[in-house]
Design a protein around this nucleic acid. Structure first.
Lengths: 199, 199
DNA sequence: CCCTTTACATTGCGACTGTATTGCAAAAGG
DNA sequence: CCTTTTGCAATACAGTCGCAATGTAAAGGG
């Protein structure tokens, strides 16, 4: 039966199991054997598609990034053509917040990877690029949509850094159980109110 | 020579070594033997002061909290009596940002614990209480110092959540190397500008 | 039809983990 | 002086880890 399998599919299947393990027990519980058990395959198969544990981790990190990217894309597309900057930003950022159980699980994994890459700078490239790209886009939307930019009361770059930080911080706090998702969403709206306030 | 040792001191010494290991290699590298080596003591001694690894971890988590608390306290005290709300908040939040190497190291450990507790809710109490207390205090300062509160354009509670989230997010991004500390500080100031803007 | 390649499964190895156990020296209390 | 307690060291143990090596069944190419 060999020769007929799709490598990408298998790797995705394994990465999926990895993320389930990581979401429930943390990245330190991610071992070849645990992942294999979660995927209901043999440990040998996992080793066949990922020659080392690091390779598997790096792949999973890329999957996390792609999932978030896809989430943002879907949220934006749902808005139709030429949405207002504020609505666009709200949709994007809300899509990245851990507001339902699926995003909570992914968020826990992402948080674990944040700590993971903070100690392994070599692997950090994936998340780094993502943030940088988002930053530029957000700054553009703020420049285009905030009335406070014209009179110099808001600097788009700085405001973008702040807005993305708000999102990240709200996510972390919600994952830590410090307050419920609704509170985070309300705070995000308040932040957008501040940024797009008239006068 | 026994009977003459200060338990708290020894535990602090060991916790210090633990944090060095965690800051450099992550929490998953924190083992009895590694910590013992970093503290330059025998593994038996570590075991003498912490009966289990979990006990050691919980203690270290408390140390992280206390260090941050102390940092905030010092920053506030340096301001003298009755500081303006905005200056007070800036000093507090800047003290919690990873702006120098010492705070970067502590920040990496704190980030690791964030991911750690996200998966072990039983241990999360320490960080939870800290955030809640900070939240209330920050809300009070905003209520007292922001001109935007009077006319209802800023809700102190929501703004406090946002402000603390900005701080957390900036910290995470700096630790991830997404931008330099100066950028984070500038974004924090911009956020305070927004919150305390006249008119 | 053979033979190479692919897709696994199994097994084994050395290193490391947390924890329990045991041993022993030194100080303090009676 | 002697006994108990304390502080620590060393060792043993069962389990898990990543990874390498090996075996085997099946499909496709020549």
């Amino acid at each position: 039966m060999p020769r007929r399998v799709d490598h990408r599919e298998r790797r995705a299947l394994i990465a999926d199991a990895l993320m389930r393990v990581a979401a429930e027990q943390g990245l330190e519980a991610v071992s070849l054997r645990h992942v294999a058990a979660a995927a209901e395959v043999s440990a040998g198969m996992v080793q066949h598609y990922f020659r080392t544990r690091d390779e598997m981790m790096t792949f999973a990190l890329a999957v996390v990034s792609e999932r978030n990217e896809a989430r943002v894309r879907r949220a934006v597309e749902a808005l139709g053509a030429t949405p207002a900057p504020r609505a666009l930003l709200r949709a994007m950022l809300a899509a990245l917040l851990p507001l339902d159980e699926e995003r909570r699980a992914d968020g826990r994994v992402a948080l674990a990877f944040l700590a993971y890459t903070a100690v392994r700078p070599a692997v950090a490239a994936a998340l780094h690029g993502e943030t940088t790209a988002l930053l530029a886009f957000v700054a553009g939307q703020i420049a285009a949509g905030s009335p406070l930019v014209a009179d110099g009361r808001v600097d788009p770059e700085r405001a973008a850094v702040g807005l993305l930080a708000v999102m990240e911080g709200l996510g972390v706090h919600v994952l830590g159980g410090h307050y419920p998702p609704e509170t985070a969403l309300a705070a995000l709206d308040a932040q957008l109110d501040l940024l797009f306030a008239p006068g």
